[in-house]
Design a binder for these strands. Structure first.
Lengths: 205, 205
DNA sequence: TGGCATTTACATTCATGTATGTATGCGTGT
DNA sequence: ACACGCATACATACATGAATGTAAATGCCA
């Protein structure tokens, strides 16, 4: 049945992206053909090629429907006019990113990004990811530097080291949780680990 | 040129595995054909099919030439008859795993495993990796429990939380470093982060 | 000389991209 | 209000290329 209304066309586009999430998640990106995706959405490849240029284009459209956790952290930190101190800002931004990640679509897409597709290809924006990671580290570093200058950090931990600790812990938690989401709760257990880290590096009277 | 001596045959097998490392690293696993690997080793696909059943078999043979970092940690912890306390055992095992990872072949293969291939396929031993991660966590947890019982851990950090913190930090450091090996030194900066964590959670007089 | 290592040749499968078909929604003119 | 025309939203068909697996051919060492 050709030519639906404009709203229906938009719906099939979303349905195709939904199907892509499902099939990519199940079979991995390189092993799923556009035929698979189309059939899973109850359509044919013609629909896919109408809405998207090719597989890479569809993949990027899928990515565009979610926000990167590191981007979320950057935005949270830079947006607020720091009603809180730098350490609480950092901590809450991290927990907020965890919350966002637990939304079903975000969870699916980022699982695909981390565990279901190869970097080094026209399909994955590696450089963008690297730049994002570098930017986030820089923003976090500045926060820790400020905390250090304000005497909020304990003396034993340099801002750079705190940055690496937090960054790697976030990355590790997200990585592990996306691989085995049922083994622990990112918000609860992950949040507890993050809270503990901040507790340990905060100077107390 | 057919049929060299038996030693030469073994040499071509190794050369094929070396080539696989190179090409997988450069192009990703799914995008490299057996033809690519063979040509990179100066041979044809026939040689590949002689030594290996198929791509998955070759991949596993490539994996068999290195040791998993988490396996290294498990072995280090369980092998030693603890001449050191549990915390130092954990810390040194981690640093040792970092050292092993910086060896060129190990670095290449684990970069491929983490960043150049899709899980969910006949090619990647996901379940084995998950089981390894679970085993490692359990061994680490027991170590922290022992440290807790011996009063070596500070009261504010429960053994389970310490386990998650260490495990996620290791995972995050390795993940980040394999993605951008030039951005920091795993042994130096990574080791510093690990040392700092242990410093923070150790009870002091 | 016979089995081993490797090449060459061949058949098959499969995903991609494109070209074409087609029915329908929608604006336009009157 | 209604017919007309066109662009839209898909489905279908086809051509191509690439990768795989296997079988046959080839040469060399022991």
């Amino acid at each position: 049945m050709p030519r639906r209304t404009k709203a229906e066309a938009e719906a099939t586009r979303e349905a195709l992206l939904d199907a892509a999430e499902d099939v990519f998640l199940e079979k991995g990106v390189s092993r799923t053909s556009l035929e698979h995706i189309a059939r899973h959405a109850g359509m044919t490849r013609g629909a896919v090629y109408w809405h998207f240029k090719n597989k890479a284009d569809l993949f990027h459209a899928m990515l565009d429907r979610v926000k990167m956790p590191l981007q979320q952290i950057i935005d949270d930190i830079t947006a607020e006019q720091q009603p809180l101190g730098p350490l609480d800002t950092l901590r809450l931004a991290t927990l907020h990113a965890f919350e966002m990640l637990e939304r079903p679509r975000s969870c699916r897409v980022h699982t695909i990004l981390m565990h279901r597709c190869e970097f080094i290809s026209d399909i994955n924006p590696v450089e963008l990811q690297n730049r994002l990671a570098a930017d986030c580290r820089e923003v976090v570093r500045r926060c820790f530097q400020q905390a250090h200058d304000e005497g909020l950090l304990i003396d034993e931990i340099a801002p750079d080291v705190a940055t690496l600790m937090l960054h790697s812990m976030i990355g590790g938690l997200v990585h592990d949780w996306l691989r085995t989401p049922d083994s622990f709760s990112l918000r609860e257990s992950g949040g507890e680990a993050i809270d503990s880290l901040f507790y340990l590096i905060t100077r107390r009277a």
